[in-house]
Simulated scan of single mutants.
Amino acid sequence: MGTDWSLHAVAPPAGTREGVQAALDRVVAQMSQWESKSDLARFNRAPPGEWQAIPAEFAEVLAAGVDIGHRSAGAFSLTLGELSEAWGFGAAGPVDAIPETAAPQSGLEFEPAVRRIRRGDGALLDLSGIAKGYGVDLAAEWLLANGVRHFLLEVGGELRGEGIRPDGQPWWVDVEVPPSWPGAGWRVALHDLSAATSGDYRRGLDIDGQHYSHSFDPRTGRPIVNGVRSVTVLHRSCTMADGWATALTVLGAEAGVALADEQELAACILANGREHVSRAWAAMLD
């Protein structure tokens, strides 16, 4: 995933480090667009229209992504692989000129009951907007299944906290804010809760003095230009927090908060020098 992970756990058994690493390795082996032997990479190389069987974990991520895409009216998409490659964020590496791209026209067919998928022309999978959150959940479920009830797990800035610390306090974490942001970030208690943040300051492309976001609007096929610096979502599932943070980033502050309210999501959007919070986020302050 191009990042690292950390774990604070109460009384972890022998083999915990290896168990967490194995869960994350499974996500990489299935869903990485940078690993040429991954299930995702093989799917993207397969001929359009050809059905491909996928593992159970891969299918779980697709189901979550399809759901978020439907509920966000297309602000989230799993088939942005061609765009991310063209703009230098994929396996091919950086580019030195602005590419001409448009919204992807060909879609993805997914049959969850039998765990198989096929793509149309030009539809390449890119799960970077949701798979890291799923990696947190998969590793967290391994910990719970192996008797670790109290822990804070972090993978590349996405977090999940279960239970409490040895001193009886919840797992307090500071919400990441963009560099030079004028306000202070929130401190939240992750007690059986996950947090995911999407920001334009983490990755981007600079060409001729212009910065382009690594987040694409699936409806236009272009990097977003809506003033959003970061979006943080709190959710029981880190998978859903990650995917929704991506979708709300694309929608922008006003539409993003409106959808977060409709979906009863706890979300904080930093945009245009202001902080915008959903009703569910505000309710957590009481």
Rank of each mutant, 00 (worst) to 15 (best):
S215Y: 09
N226Y: 02
A59M: 04
L190W: 01
G133L: 08
T249Q: 12
A92M: 13
L251V: 01
V177G: 01
T101E: 11
E57H: 14
P170G: 13
I224R: 09
P94S: 11
N272Q: 15
A283L: 15
A23N: 04
D96W: 09
A247D: 04
A11T: 10
E82F: 02
Q33M: 14
F216H: 05
A266H: 11
W5D: 05
R115E: 13
W172K: 08
V177T: 15
T239D: 09
A46E: 11
L143N: 02
P48G: 03
R45N: 03
N44L: 11
A266L: 06
D96G: 08
P182V: 03
A41C: 14
L78D: 02
G93S: 04
A247P: 08
W34N: 09
E109T: 15
L143D: 00
A41P: 11
G221V: 11
V136Q: 00
E100K: 03
A9P: 10
A14E: 14
G107H: 07
A139E: 02
G185P: 01
L153K: 00
W281E: 02
H276P: 05
Q263S: 14
G2M: 06
E109D: 15
A29C: 02
G273P: 11
G122T: 05
V27I: 15
A189R: 06
H150M: 01
D261S: 13
A123S: 11
F58E: 04
Q30T: 09
S36L: 02
P13I: 10
T232M: 15
A189F: 12
W181D: 04
V225C: 14
E18G: 14
D25T: 06
R26M: 05
M1W: 07
S215M: 06
V175H: 11
R45M: 04
V27A: 00
H150N: 15
G256C: 08
S38F: 09
A258M: 10
K37I: 02
T79D: 05
E18K: 15
Q210A: 13
S36W: 04
S180Y: 14
D286A: 08
G129S: 05
P94C: 12
I224F: 06
M284S: 12
N226T: 03
H191K: 11
D192R: 08
L152V: 08
A184L: 07
